[in-house]
Write a protein that binds this DNA or RNA. Structure first.
Length: 427
RNA sequence: GCGGCUGUAGCUCAAUAGGUUAGAGCACCUGGUUGUGGCCCAGGAGGUUGCGGGUUCAAAUCCCGUCAGUCGCCCCA
């Protein structure tokens, strides 16, 4: 065992895995641009109150999952457990209410939650986050969902579907929760320890219980759709009609209740059948019409969503979707002797300044060893310099991919020769 | 925060019912070629068997603790 190991629940993203990350980031920028979303990057930590108040004091995230620490100045800071609260804080702080509305923003970066790690769940994990702030039309809810869908399509991810629900608003949800709590209270004896605790803290969550023995209770429990106010109902129905219009498969899931307090009206998740168990949600989001006010801004509607990058990669691997390979250096410089080494160092600089990737191997290894290294770097050409070449002012060029005779190229034209030879070649 | 399973070389794994210098494949280094990669061959380096304690004549192996990984619960991406 090494003396030091990475903290529990964190990962080193090694070179071999970077092709996925580059590809996903590239597709994110592309799809976000198609929808007119602009990138914003907020700090990785914020004043603790931003999350405590924004996400909600009663949530699991705030109660037991935040990385909170005292700043040297005495204030309390927290590593972001999610993006939305920070982005809405930035909206308010930067006066974005005077920008053309809605303000459509996206971010990519790590978030932190002190959970117990398990498959596809880590303490530091990356998210792609998108927010549309300042618009209440359900068409913008659809737009965010559509953006999510298009991203997966662009990545070659299939077999996904939406789960949607309406959780009501500040006007109608309290009544529903009251009714729900009253209902479960009548059957408290049948609830397990977990669900009894939820009865007090968050009765909505009982709907998602894993306890099979109370399925009949869940079935007969009050349904949110019978309690939402006219405004929420119309919002939801319109959203569903837009989804129908786009032909996107969805399931209305009356038990979908997300664990952040700020959601109002629309909540949704994207599920992938490629991931088993509890981690079938690869992204999720919803509307948060009350959040800006909670954070000290003017009442401002908003809707957003977050996709887990690690889960996205898992799905790609499950489905055997391969990202394009990263480009690697295209030539290796092989030297024999000190004079040639100096000539190679100069040539390498010249090649790189002309956008030709070039690598060398130091500590004066044998030619054979240099050739082996060149092979492992997947270069297209090995450029060989020794006393003979120096004398004649030429470079010996060996094609490492095609089985053709080695060539001798004049030093003065080697750059243009390579430019032509490498044209169209990814190596 | 709770529970199951697992910790042997960089990686994947061996090591009869506890028994002597803990092995192999891959990867790495060197050589087989005074200046030519892949394939092949030869050699080399690499381990306080996660850590600590206990049982035993003897522990990688059994027991306890601890740490870590992994899977699951809660919750979520």
């Amino acid at each position: 065992m090494p003396q030091y190991q990475r903290p529990t629940g964190t990962n080193d993203i090694l070179p071999d895995e970077q092709a996925y990350w580059h590809y996903i980031f590239d597709r994110i920028h592309h799809v976000a641009a198609l929808y007119g979303y602009q990138q914003i990057e907020t700090p990785i930590f914020e004043d603790t109150a931003v999350f405590a108040r924004g996400v909600g004091e009663g949530t699991d995230i705030v109660q037991k999952e935040m990385y909170t620490f005292e700043d040297r100045g005495g204030g309390s800071l927290t590593l972001r457990p999610e993006f939305t609260a920070g982005v809405v804080r930035a909206y308010i702080e930067n006066g974005m209410k005077v920008w053309p509305q809605p303000v459509k923003l996206y971010s990519i970066g790590p978030a932190f939650r002190h959970d117990r790690p398990q498959a596809n769940r880590y303490r530091q994990f990356w998210q792609f986050n998108a927010e549309a702030i300042g618009e209440q039309d359900p068409a913008i809810d659809l737009e965010i969902m559509s953006l999510a869908w298009d991203l997966y399509t662009a990545l070659g991810i299939t077999e996904i579907s939406f789960q949607v629900n309406s959780t009501g608003c500040s006007k109608c949800r309290p009544t529903y929760i009251e009714q729900l709590a009253a209902f479960f209270a009548q059957h408290e004896g049948r609830l397990d320890e977990n669900d009894q605790r939820r009865l007090a803290s968050n009765p909505l969550r009982i709907l998602d219980t894993k306890d099979a023995s109370i399925q009949d209770l869940i079935e007969s429990a009050p349904n949110i759709s019978d309690y939402v106010c006219d405004e929420c109902r119309e919002h939801f129905d319109t959203l569903l009609s837009y989804l129908d219009l786009q032909g996107r498969p969805y399931t209305i899931n009356p038990r979908l209740v997300r664990g952040l307090d700020y959601y109002t009206k629309t909540v949704f998740e994207v599920w992938s059948s490629a991931l088993g168990g509890a981690q079938s949600a690869i992204s999720g989001g919803g509307r948060y019409d009350g959040l800006a006010e909670v954070l000290g801004g003017e009442p401002t509607p908003g809707v957003g969503y977050a996709a887990g990058i690690e889960r996205t990669i898992s799905v790609m691997q499950e489905l055997d979707v391969r990202p394009p390979e990263l480009t690697s250096p295209r030539v290796a410089l092989i030297y024999l002797g000190d004079a040639a080494k100096r000539a190679c160092i100069a040539l390498a600089s010249e090649l790189r300044s002309r956008d030709i990737g070039a690598v060398m191997f130091f500590d004066d290894p044998s030619m054979r060893s240099q050739m082996r290294s060149a092979d492992r770097e997947d270069v297209r050409y090995a450029l060989i310099l020794g006393d003979r070449e120096l004398e004649q002012d030429v470079v010996a060029v060996k094609d490492m991919v095609k089985d053709v005779a080695q060539q001798t190229i004049e030093r003065g034209v080697i750059v243009s020769w390579l430019k032509e030879g490498l044209n169209g070649s990814r190596q």
